[in-house]
């Protein structure tokens, strides 16, 4: 098991390096550069060269990459070129908002999804099952920015219950969390339902029935526990997907966060900030995948047996 863990973590190293190369280099293919935003229009080439030296943009790309990577590994994310402040400060301002949004959306998806999935599984092929599965499918196919705007229209404008945008109070979180969470709910509900139905057919369930336990107790006490394994795994694997949803939703609701920071910095060519944001998102996804794989290994007896 330990050997598996070590091997799994070591596998991340080449991926991390590849990710860092891509993050670093891809921005340089976008037309325009950050110096343009700083220089006086009509500036001399000398002034430009001086500015490039100042921000280290005059060196060959591989050298710039080496410096950047070694700084990042030492925890130094550099200084924003256009925003003129430490990138770490910008990230520190944005990250809590994104974590709150992503975390709550994840929680919402899990609770609502498992709940609906259980109800659907218990009523397999009857109308509550069909209604729930139809509803969540519809929920997962609406573009998140559209859903966000429609929710805004209904709950903020027509009903006046919740604030439209921003992050000035906890109520401002409700609509963005719902917007992202509804997509995740569909996924969780589907997996919960399928896993419960599958688990119900397993030998140990027949045994429990034979022992005379009440069907509901069997379902909630034993079957659900088994069914949760794939749910947790898939959720961990889907962290990136939730973060991706957060980018659009943050823009729609004018919320501070990594998504808005990223979009803003991308359009200003503020490389250090974009690099840091992408790195944060990629790391979250990689850790999510790692977590998912480990959970699968720990909880799935077949995989565990294979590794032993």
């Amino acid at each position: 098991m330990i050997a598996y863990l070590v091997r799994r973590i070591l596998m991340l190293v080449p991926v991390f390096l590849a990710v860092s190369v891509v993050i670093f280099s891809i921005l340089h293919f976008i037309p325009g550069d950050p110096i343009d935003n700083l220089l006086k229009i009509g500036s001399s080439p000398e002034a430009r060269a001086e500015m490039e030296v100042r921000y280290g943009l005059d060196r060959p790309l591989p050298v710039q990459y080496g410096i950047w990577l070694s700084n990042v590994l030492r925890g130094d994310l550099g200084t924003a070129i256009v925003a003129r402040r430490p990138v770490a400060d910008l990230i520190a301002q944005a990250l809590p908002h994104s974590l709150a949004l992503g975390g709550l959306a994840l929680l919402f998806s899990t609770v609502a999804g498992v709940g609906l999935g259980v109800i659907a599984a218990l009523n397999r092929d009857r109308w509550p099952d069909r209604a729930i599965m139809g509803g969540v499918l519809l929920g997962s196919t609406m573009p998140s920015f559209w859903l966000g705007l429609i929710l805004m229209l209904v709950f903020s404008v027509w009903l006046g219950w919740l604030p439209v945008s921003g992050a000035r109070s906890w109520t401002a979180l409700v609509l963005p969390v719902l917007t992202i969470g509804l997509g995740g709910t569909a996924l969780v509900a589907r997996i919960t339902r399928v896993s419960m139905i599958e688990a119900s057919g397993r030998d140990f369930v027949t045994l429990l029935h034979a022992k005379g336990l009440s069907p509901l107790r069997i379902q909630l006490g034993h079957v659900l526990r088994h069914a949760l394994i794939p749910v947790v795994t898939i959720l961990a694997l889907r962290i990136g997907w939730i973060l991706g949803g957060a980018v659009t939703v943050e823009v729609v609701f004018a919320r501070p966060g990594l998504g808005t920071l990223l979009i803003k910095s991308l359009s200003q060519h503020d490389y250090p900030v974009v690099q840091a944001c992408l790195l944060m998102l990629a790391m979250a996804v990689m850790l999510g995948t790692l977590l998912g794989d480990i959970l699968q290994a720990v909880m799935d007896p077949r995989v565990r047996a294979a590794l032993a």
Partner: peptide, 18 residues
């Protein structure tokens, strides 16, 4: 001073008292 890039969102904020 809040910065809201989309005019319609800003208007909705005004309308709803935000």
């Amino acid at each position: 001073f809040r910065e809201i890039p989309e005019d319609s969102t800003a208007f909705l904020e005004l309308k709803t008292g935000g």
